[in-house]
Amino acid sequence: MRNLSICAALLSVALCGMLSADEKLSMSDADKAMYAEMVENNPAAMDLAEGEEVFNSLIGQEAYAKVLGVSVKDLPETIAGFPRMLTATPKYDFTFPKTMRKVVTLSQSLQMALADRDKKVFKLKDKEMVNMTAYVKSLANDLKTNIDVKANKQMQEMHALGQSVFEERRGGRGLSCNSCHSADVVGQRLRMQPLPDLGAKETAAAGTWPAYRMTQSAMVTLDQRMQQCMKNALLAEIPLGSKEMVALEVYVTNKTKGNAIQIPGLKR
Protein backbone atom coordinates (compact mmCIF):
# COMPACT_ATOMS: atom_id res chain seq x y z
CA MET A 1 0.00 0.00 0.00
CA ARG A 2 1.43 3.37 -1.03
CA ASN A 3 0.89 6.07 1.47
CA LEU A 4 3.38 8.60 0.27
CA SER A 5 0.95 10.81 -1.54
CA ILE A 6 -1.46 10.63 1.37
CA CYS A 7 1.05 12.02 3.69
CA ALA A 8 2.71 14.50 1.47
CA ALA A 9 -0.46 16.45 2.07
CA LEU A 10 -0.53 15.82 5.78
CA LEU A 11 3.12 16.52 6.19
CA SER A 12 2.58 20.08 5.21
CA VAL A 13 0.13 20.60 8.05
CA ALA A 14 1.57 18.48 10.75
CA LEU A 15 5.24 19.01 10.05
CA CYS A 16 5.96 21.78 7.62
CA GLY A 17 3.48 24.00 9.41
CA MET A 18 5.48 23.57 12.55
CA LEU A 19 8.83 23.86 10.87
CA SER A 20 7.89 27.25 9.54
CA ALA A 21 6.73 28.35 12.97
CA ASP A 22 10.31 29.10 13.87
CA GLU A 23 9.95 29.09 17.63
CA LYS A 24 9.22 25.89 19.46
CA LEU A 25 8.29 22.78 17.62
CA SER A 26 5.63 20.53 19.01
CA MET A 27 7.25 17.42 17.57
CA SER A 28 10.54 16.25 18.95
CA ASP A 29 13.21 15.00 16.55
CA ALA A 30 12.36 11.46 17.58
CA ASP A 31 8.68 12.06 16.82
CA LYS A 32 9.56 13.52 13.44
CA ALA A 33 11.66 10.48 12.60
CA MET A 34 8.77 8.25 13.66
CA TYR A 35 6.38 10.26 11.51
CA ALA A 36 8.66 9.93 8.47
CA GLU A 37 8.83 6.21 9.07
CA MET A 38 5.05 5.96 9.29
CA VAL A 39 4.63 7.93 6.09
CA GLU A 40 6.34 5.02 4.37
CA ASN A 41 4.52 2.42 6.34
CA ASN A 42 1.19 3.51 7.78
CA PRO A 43 0.35 1.22 10.72
CA ALA A 44 -3.33 1.56 9.82
CA ALA A 45 -2.76 -0.50 6.66
CA MET A 46 -3.29 -3.55 8.88
CA ASP A 47 -6.57 -2.18 10.22
CA LEU A 48 -7.71 -1.64 6.65
CA ALA A 49 -6.87 -5.21 5.73
CA GLU A 50 -8.91 -6.37 8.72
CA GLY A 51 -11.76 -4.11 7.66
CA GLU A 52 -11.66 -5.60 4.18
CA GLU A 53 -11.90 -9.10 5.58
CA VAL A 54 -14.81 -8.28 7.88
CA PHE A 55 -16.64 -6.38 5.15
CA ASN A 56 -16.22 -9.08 2.53
CA SER A 57 -17.22 -11.89 4.84
CA LEU A 58 -20.24 -10.16 6.40
CA ILE A 59 -21.56 -7.86 3.65
CA GLY A 60 -19.72 -7.72 0.34
CA GLN A 61 -19.89 -5.00 -2.32
CA GLU A 62 -22.97 -6.35 -4.07
CA ALA A 63 -25.17 -6.42 -0.98
CA TYR A 64 -23.83 -3.06 0.16
CA ALA A 65 -24.54 -1.46 -3.21
CA LYS A 66 -28.08 -2.80 -3.03
CA VAL A 67 -28.70 -1.19 0.36
CA LEU A 68 -27.42 2.10 -1.01
CA GLY A 69 -29.63 1.68 -4.06
CA VAL A 70 -26.78 1.89 -6.58
CA SER A 71 -24.85 -0.47 -8.84
CA VAL A 72 -21.49 -1.91 -7.76
CA LYS A 73 -19.86 0.17 -10.48
CA ASP A 74 -21.18 3.35 -8.87
CA LEU A 75 -20.10 2.41 -5.35
CA PRO A 76 -16.90 4.52 -5.19
CA GLU A 77 -18.66 7.67 -6.40
CA THR A 78 -21.49 7.08 -3.89
CA ILE A 79 -19.06 6.43 -1.05
CA ALA A 80 -17.29 9.70 -1.86
CA GLY A 81 -20.54 11.56 -1.14
CA PHE A 82 -21.17 10.59 2.49
CA PRO A 83 -22.78 11.70 4.73
CA ARG A 84 -25.81 11.54 2.44
CA MET A 85 -29.51 10.89 2.48
CA LEU A 86 -30.14 7.47 1.10
CA THR A 87 -32.89 7.12 -1.44
CA ALA A 88 -34.55 3.77 -1.72
CA THR A 89 -34.53 1.60 -4.81
CA PRO A 90 -37.88 0.15 -5.95
CA LYS A 91 -37.04 -3.19 -4.39
CA TYR A 92 -36.09 -1.54 -1.16
CA ASP A 93 -38.90 0.95 -1.21
CA PHE A 94 -39.74 0.35 2.40
CA THR A 95 -36.18 0.56 3.61
CA PHE A 96 -36.80 4.27 4.03
CA PRO A 97 -40.40 5.14 4.59
CA LYS A 98 -40.71 8.74 3.43
CA THR A 99 -41.26 10.11 6.90
CA MET A 100 -38.07 8.52 8.16
CA ARG A 101 -35.55 9.50 5.53
CA LYS A 102 -32.31 10.23 7.26
CA VAL A 103 -28.94 11.65 6.48
CA VAL A 104 -26.51 8.90 7.44
CA THR A 105 -22.76 8.52 7.71
CA LEU A 106 -20.80 5.83 5.95
CA SER A 107 -20.57 3.89 9.23
CA GLN A 108 -24.32 4.08 9.79
CA SER A 109 -24.94 2.80 6.25
CA LEU A 110 -22.73 -0.16 7.13
CA GLN A 111 -24.86 -0.79 10.21
CA MET A 112 -27.86 -0.97 7.88
CA ALA A 113 -26.05 -3.30 5.52
CA LEU A 114 -25.17 -5.61 8.42
CA ALA A 115 -28.81 -5.72 9.49
CA ASP A 116 -29.83 -6.35 5.89
CA ARG A 117 -27.59 -9.43 5.92
CA ASP A 118 -28.95 -10.50 9.32
CA LYS A 119 -25.52 -10.02 10.83
CA LYS A 120 -24.62 -8.63 14.21
CA VAL A 121 -24.74 -4.84 14.02
CA PHE A 122 -21.47 -3.50 15.42
CA LYS A 123 -21.48 -0.34 17.50
CA LEU A 124 -20.00 2.74 15.86
CA LYS A 125 -17.05 2.73 18.23
CA ASP A 126 -16.27 -0.97 17.73
CA LYS A 127 -12.93 -1.68 16.12
CA GLU A 128 -14.66 -3.78 13.43
CA MET A 129 -16.82 -0.82 12.48
CA VAL A 130 -13.92 1.64 12.36
CA ASN A 131 -11.85 -0.75 10.28
CA MET A 132 -14.72 -1.49 7.92
CA THR A 133 -15.50 2.19 7.51
CA ALA A 134 -11.88 2.88 6.60
CA TYR A 135 -11.75 0.02 4.14
CA VAL A 136 -15.02 0.92 2.44
CA LYS A 137 -14.03 4.56 2.20
CA SER A 138 -10.71 3.52 0.67
CA LEU A 139 -12.71 2.05 -2.23
CA ALA A 140 -13.14 5.71 -3.19
CA ASN A 141 -9.44 6.56 -2.86
CA ASP A 142 -8.29 9.25 -5.31
CA LEU A 143 -11.86 10.33 -6.02
CA LYS A 144 -12.82 13.74 -4.74
CA THR A 145 -15.19 14.11 -1.80
CA ASN A 146 -18.49 15.08 -3.38
CA ILE A 147 -20.90 15.69 -0.51
CA ASP A 148 -23.93 17.66 -1.69
CA VAL A 149 -25.37 19.75 1.13
CA LYS A 150 -27.98 21.22 -1.20
CA ALA A 151 -29.19 17.84 -2.47
CA ASN A 152 -32.41 17.93 -0.47
CA LYS A 153 -34.11 19.52 2.50
CA GLN A 154 -32.65 17.02 4.95
CA MET A 155 -29.06 17.71 3.85
CA GLN A 156 -29.66 21.45 4.01
CA GLU A 157 -31.01 21.12 7.53
CA MET A 158 -28.12 18.95 8.65
CA HIS A 159 -25.60 21.39 7.21
CA ALA A 160 -27.24 24.28 9.03
CA LEU A 161 -27.40 22.27 12.26
CA GLY A 162 -23.73 21.32 11.84
CA GLN A 163 -22.75 24.96 11.51
CA SER A 164 -24.64 25.90 14.67
CA VAL A 165 -23.08 23.02 16.63
CA PHE A 166 -19.66 24.11 15.32
CA GLU A 167 -20.20 27.69 16.43
CA GLU A 168 -21.89 27.13 19.78
CA ARG A 169 -19.77 28.05 22.78
CA ARG A 170 -20.22 25.59 25.60
CA GLY A 171 -18.49 23.40 28.14
CA GLY A 172 -16.06 24.00 30.96
CA ARG A 173 -14.17 26.76 29.17
CA GLY A 174 -16.92 28.29 27.07
CA LEU A 175 -15.17 27.42 23.82
CA SER A 176 -16.64 26.42 20.46
CA CYS A 177 -15.02 24.60 17.55
CA ASN A 178 -14.92 28.01 15.97
CA SER A 179 -12.73 29.39 18.77
CA CYS A 180 -9.86 27.39 17.34
CA HIS A 181 -10.94 26.72 13.77
CA SER A 182 -12.44 29.98 12.52
CA ALA A 183 -10.74 31.56 9.51
CA ASP A 184 -9.15 34.32 11.60
CA VAL A 185 -7.25 32.00 13.98
CA VAL A 186 -6.19 29.33 11.53
CA GLY A 187 -2.40 29.11 11.36
CA GLN A 188 -1.98 30.65 14.79
CA ARG A 189 -0.74 28.52 17.63
CA LEU A 190 -2.54 26.94 20.53
CA ARG A 191 0.39 26.23 22.85
CA MET A 192 2.88 24.94 20.28
CA GLN A 193 0.23 23.45 18.05
CA PRO A 194 -0.55 25.23 14.78
CA LEU A 195 -4.32 25.40 14.32
CA PRO A 196 -5.27 23.55 11.14
CA ASP A 197 -7.58 25.08 8.57
CA LEU A 198 -10.21 22.36 8.37
CA GLY A 199 -11.08 23.55 4.89
CA ALA A 200 -7.54 23.65 3.49
CA LYS A 201 -6.24 21.40 0.75
CA GLU A 202 -3.31 20.31 2.95
CA THR A 203 -5.57 19.37 5.86
CA ALA A 204 -8.09 17.65 3.62
CA ALA A 205 -9.97 16.78 6.78
CA ALA A 206 -12.83 14.97 5.07
CA GLY A 207 -10.71 12.96 2.68
CA THR A 208 -8.09 11.77 5.15
CA TRP A 209 -10.15 10.26 7.98
CA PRO A 210 -10.22 7.50 9.21
CA ALA A 211 -6.58 8.15 9.89
CA TYR A 212 -3.86 6.69 12.07
CA ARG A 213 -3.31 9.16 14.91
CA MET A 214 0.21 8.92 16.24
CA THR A 215 -0.71 10.49 19.56
CA GLN A 216 -3.41 7.84 20.07
CA SER A 217 -1.48 4.96 18.47
CA ALA A 218 -4.72 3.96 16.77
CA MET A 219 -6.84 4.56 13.71
CA VAL A 220 -9.74 6.88 14.45
CA THR A 221 -12.66 8.22 12.43
CA LEU A 222 -13.36 11.89 11.78
CA ASP A 223 -16.14 11.80 14.37
CA GLN A 224 -13.82 10.30 16.97
CA ARG A 225 -11.24 12.96 16.11
CA MET A 226 -13.85 15.64 16.72
CA GLN A 227 -14.70 14.01 20.05
CA GLN A 228 -11.02 14.25 20.97
CA CYS A 229 -11.11 18.01 20.30
CA MET A 230 -14.20 18.26 22.51
CA LYS A 231 -12.52 16.34 25.30
CA ASN A 232 -9.34 18.45 25.13
CA ALA A 233 -11.27 21.70 25.19
CA LEU A 234 -13.67 20.55 27.97
CA LEU A 235 -16.74 20.42 25.74
CA ALA A 236 -19.07 17.52 26.60
CA GLU A 237 -18.52 14.80 24.02
CA ILE A 238 -21.35 14.49 21.52
CA PRO A 239 -22.09 10.77 21.08
CA LEU A 240 -21.19 9.03 17.84
CA GLY A 241 -24.14 8.70 15.49
CA SER A 242 -26.25 11.38 17.17
CA LYS A 243 -27.97 13.86 14.89
CA GLU A 244 -25.61 16.60 16.06
CA MET A 245 -22.50 14.50 15.38
CA VAL A 246 -23.70 13.55 11.91
CA ALA A 247 -24.46 17.23 11.33
CA LEU A 248 -20.91 18.18 12.39
CA GLU A 249 -19.55 15.59 9.99
CA VAL A 250 -21.69 17.07 7.21
CA TYR A 251 -20.48 20.58 7.99
CA VAL A 252 -16.78 19.72 8.31
CA THR A 253 -16.85 17.41 5.28
CA ASN A 254 -18.40 20.15 3.19
CA LYS A 255 -15.60 22.53 4.16
CA THR A 256 -13.13 20.31 2.34
CA LYS A 257 -15.40 19.22 -0.45
CA GLY A 258 -13.40 18.44 -3.59
CA ASN A 259 -10.30 17.19 -1.80
CA ALA A 260 -9.05 13.77 -2.84
CA ILE A 261 -9.89 10.81 -0.64
CA GLN A 262 -6.74 9.14 0.66
CA ILE A 263 -7.41 6.49 3.25
CA PRO A 264 -5.85 5.72 5.64
CA GLY A 265 -4.58 9.16 6.57
CA LEU A 266 -1.71 9.73 8.97
CA LYS A 267 -1.99 12.44 11.58
CA ARG A 268 0.01 13.65 14.49
Binding site: F94, F96, M100, Q111, P239, S242, K243
Partner: peptide, 16 residues
Protein backbone atom coordinates in the same frame (compact mmCIF):
# COMPACT_ATOMS: atom_id res chain seq x y z
CA UNK B 1 -37.35 -4.57 7.14
CA UNK B 2 -36.90 -0.91 7.90
CA UNK B 3 -33.14 -0.86 8.07
CA UNK B 4 -32.99 2.66 9.40
CA UNK B 5 -34.23 1.24 12.72
CA UNK B 6 -30.87 -0.40 13.42
CA UNK B 7 -28.75 2.70 12.98
CA UNK B 8 -27.15 3.97 16.15
CA UNK B 9 -28.66 7.44 16.70
CA UNK B 10 -28.30 8.40 20.37
CA UNK B 11 -30.00 11.59 21.49
CA UNK B 12 -27.52 14.35 22.30
CA UNK B 13 -30.08 17.00 23.28
CA UNK B 14 -29.72 16.51 27.03
CA UNK B 15 -25.92 16.49 26.84
CA UNK B 16 -25.85 19.75 24.91
Amino acid sequence: ADLSQVIEIPDATAIL
